[in-house]
Design a binder for these strands. Structure first.
Lengths: 197, 197
DNA sequence: GTCTATAAGATGATAGAC
DNA sequence: GTCTATCATCTTATAGAC
């Protein structure tokens, strides 16, 4: 099959997403121009519009893709067992999913206000589903008398805040590797909601 | 004393900072133009340059001012007593200082990558001093056998992450007021580093 | 699918009048 | 101290050739 010269949709498409993610994570959505993204990909600016109708959609697709991956992985994990076991599984899942995706996490967190109202609502809904998965675990554990939290919603937000914060300071090749970090964070999370002995 | 018409340095100066903070918190530094800030203040764009040499300095001054306030308030608080008492004081201090300053917290957190390298280093140094205040408390408590944390630095970052995350979701007029939130967060923090009974 | 060229407007910052 | 006017450059997005 003859291919038209200069036609590389299957290669360029992913490269656009990748370049956009990289640049937006580094400099912020508003600070990155379509020309910069095009230069990183190795095409002219006009060619980008074969892959996205506009700049806003490019951001939305990145964030939606990230949330799709997250919720898909969460569902696939399907934590089983008692509340304490499920909380440990959630904690370790969160860290293992997020730490290797520093750019996606950063963009998904920092660029929410650059989404259009409709796109923002969409992403927020997905994020809410993720939070609810944790709150469900806390509520069951609370009902079973395994946990002792004053408010499951606040505890949910506090734990997710603690875990998400990790992505903002952790760097590969640092003093502690991911396995060690995971153990320390799980210890903190476990105790924070534990029933006093 | 006759004042030149149209001369309002003492009024305009603070208004510029205030307008910039407000707009940058809402839309992001790169997305906000000097013209937008000027319009919010009620002057023309050129007049802003009586108050800042350039846009970058405007951002830096906002962030430096916030960190100055934070470190000043921390020093003034001068937590006394045993490690547990000091940890409680730090936790409540953090929440009481940050919750009423949502815009400043947001900007100081989100716009770090829009600082020049030199300005970034300056702010990071200040942030580090704040983190060290908490780590000092944890280290003392650990040495005294009051706390049981696997790693004081990681625990420091985890607790600050948890507390900072609060600023990202808390809204005035919500289900719980600041006093209730404070109690719940202190309970989580206290237990997370507690020695098992 | 990618290119070049371009439209139509916004940007940070400065100069000089008042 | 603020204004108006301006510079030089950058912006997103589109049109049409190949």
């Amino acid at each position: 099959m003859a291919r038209k010269q200069g036609s590389h949709a299957d290669i360029t498409g992913p490269k656009v997403q990748q370049a956009a993610l990289r640049l937006i994570a580094d400099h912020g959505f508003a600070a990155v121009s379509m020309r910069q993204i095009a230069a990183e990909v190795g095409v002219q600016a006009g060619a980008l519009y074969n892959y996205t109708p506009d700049k806003q959609s490019l951001l939305f697709d990145l964030m939606q893709g990230h949330m799709d991956d997250l919720l898909g992985a969460l569902e696939a994990a399907a934590f089983q067992g008692d509340a304490l076991t499920r909380l440990e599984a959630f904690t370790r899942f969160h860290i293992r999913f997020h730490l290797p995706r520093a750019d996606q996490v950063f963009v998904s967190y920092m660029e929410l206000r650059n989404l259009s109202a409709a796109n923002f609502a969409e992403i927020e809904k997905m994020r809410h589903r993720y939070e609810d998965a944790l709150e469900d675990i806390l509520r069951v554990g609370q009902a079973e008398g395994v946990f002792a939290v004053a408010d499951t919603r606040v505890a949910t937000m506090a734990i997710i805040g603690m875990l998400t914060g990790l992505s903002h300071w952790y760097r590969d090749g640092g003093r502690l590797d991911m396995i060690e970090i995971e153990a320390i964070y799980w210890d903190l999370v476990r105790k924070s909601v534990a029933k006093p002995a």
